[in-house]
């Protein structure tokens, strides 16, 4: 269960600044390591900044979402959730310039398939990838161990999908809301979007699920506040209510603000080029190093 999990202990960051601190650090570390003899300007010109890394990652997350959506056979939701978790966890401690996201992305998906017991063979898996499949197989299998190591072998991920089901059952049983099932499409969509935010590495899955349900309820002009305050939390949880309301609010903002549109193509192409130049050639399978 989540409270006793490694997810809660190691991978739920306290807030966005905590997460961004890590991203800054990894970015800085890479630059310090590979740009020791450069001036400040040179560094700026050569390496990606933390913000630029975020942009690249965002774009790859979108790619990842599409990859999972169009995966055949159809991927269960939990596999998609776990894949995103892995991807975010990996780049919390590793720079984009060290490991190219397009490689890590498929590896995350492959590992998530295994962990979530969605049985696909590697040949079946790479059939979903365009381009050189043999090369892709090599990359995935080579990176798999690295990925697990970077995840510190914390492979179990708690996704918000089961909490969502639980909450829906609870609402059906204990609240007066009319036909809670009509919330479902909206909730599922919101949860999917939530993976494009950092919510999953900041909050508990049940919190995310609750936020998604509350958000979709407000969209159909329903109010579940009394259910939350009285039925769900009651007297025992009254003192915790404030922090929950705060975190639900934050999650809702995050979900609302998701940019599902890809950034302008020109900027992205520029960034890709820059990355190709500054990436750690030791980890580039195509390089001569």
């Amino acid at each position: 269960m989540f409270p006793a999990s490694t997810q809660s202990k190691y991978w739920t960051f306290s807030d966005e600044s905590d997460l961004n601190r890590f991203r800054q650090e990894t970015n800085m570390n890479f630059i310090m390591k590979h740009g020791t003899n450069m001036t400040e300007e040179q560094r700026d010109a050569t390496f990606l900044s933390a913000v630029e890394e975020r942009l690249l990652l965002r774009q790859h997350e979108l790619q990842l979402r599409d990859f999972c959506k169009h995966f055949s056979p159809a991927m269960p939701r939990s596999v998609i959730g776990t894949t995103f978790h892995y991807f975010k966890r990996f780049y919390a401690h590793n720079s984009v310039m060290d490991y190219h996201p397009k490689e890590i992305l498929v590896t995350c998906a492959y590992l998530a398939c295994k962990v979530e017991e969605f049985n696909v063979s590697i040949s079946q898996f790479v059939a979903n990838i365009k381009g050189d499949r043999e090369k892709a197989t090599d990359i995935i299998l080579n990176n798999e161990l690295l990925l697990m190591q970077q995840l510190n072998y914390h492979l179990t991920v708690h996704n918000p999908f089961r909490p969502m089901e639980g909450l829906l059952i609870d609402i059906k049983t204990r609240s007066s809301l009319r036909d809670p099932e009509r919330l479902r499409p909206c909730v599922e969509d919101l949860l999917e979007r939530s993976f494009l935010t950092d919510a999953c590495v900041l909050y508990a899955p049940s919190q995310i699920a609750l936020a998604a349900i509350l958000h979709s309820a407000s969209k159909v002009q329903e109010n579940l506040d009394s259910y939350v305050t009285e039925t769900l939390f009651g007297q025992h949880g009254a003192d915790k209510l404030a922090s929950l309301i705060e975190c639900v609010r934050k999650i809702r903002t995050m979900m609302r603000n998701v940019e599902t549109v890809t950034p302008p193509r020109d900027t992205m192409r520029q960034l890709e080029k820059k990355l190709e130049k500054c990436r750690n050639q030791e980890n580039n399978p195509a390089s001569q190093v």
Binding site: Y10, R162, S243, L244
Partner: peptide
């Protein structure tokens, strides 16, 4: 599912 729905609702990160 009920356990999973309720567990962690009070969660405040104390990350190690």
């Amino acid at each position: 599912v009920l356990q999973e729905a309720l567990m962690g609702l009070y969660h405040v990160s104390h990350r190690t």
